[in-house]
Amino acid sequence: MRKIISVIVENEHGVLARVVNMFAARGYNITSLTVAPIPNSEFSRMTIMSEGDPKIFEQIVKQLYKLIPVYKVIESDDFIEKEMAMVKFPLKDVKDNLADIDALARCYNGKISNVNDKSVVVSVVDRPNRIDNFLKAMQAKYKNLEIVRSGVSVIER
C-alpha cells in the first residue's frame, strides 16, 4: 500500500539523517522524500512517500514521533498532492513535434521550459499518478529521454 506522510521537524543539525536512519534501521521503504524549510519558522516540512501495510505505517508514525526534533506527523487521506517532473528530449528527435509536446505538457500544468541547440526540456506539475501517465505517454512516443522527478509534496485541504 502506498501512503504519504507529512512530517514537521525542527530545523536543526542532523534532523534529516535521524529520519532517514530510522527508516533504514527498521527496514521501512522510502519511495520519495522532499524537504524544505517552512518560511518564517524554525521548522522544516518533509514529505515522505512509502510502501507498506497499515501496521508498518502505524509504527512509522510512532517511531517518527519518538525522534526528539519531530514536531508533528500529518497523516491524511485528503492531501492535495503535487509533484514536478522534467523531461529532456534530444532536439533532433523532437524538432518536428514541439507543438504536440507543448500541447500535452499544458494538459499537465506544464510547458516547454527550455530549448537550445541540443535539447528540449519540458516541465510538468501534477498528481504523482498523472505524472506517471504523462511520462508513460512520452516514453511510448520518444526515445532517449532524461527524466527527473521531484518527489511528491502535499498539503492538507
Partner: peptide, 16 residues
C-alpha cells in the same frame, strides 16, 4: 561521533 551514536541514543548533540 553523532553519526555513530544516533541509532543507539535517545538523542544526541554536536555542540557547534
Amino acid at each position: 561521533a553523532v553519526g555513530v551514536t544516533r541509532p543507539i541514543t535517545k538523542h544526541n548533540f554536536l555542540v557547534k
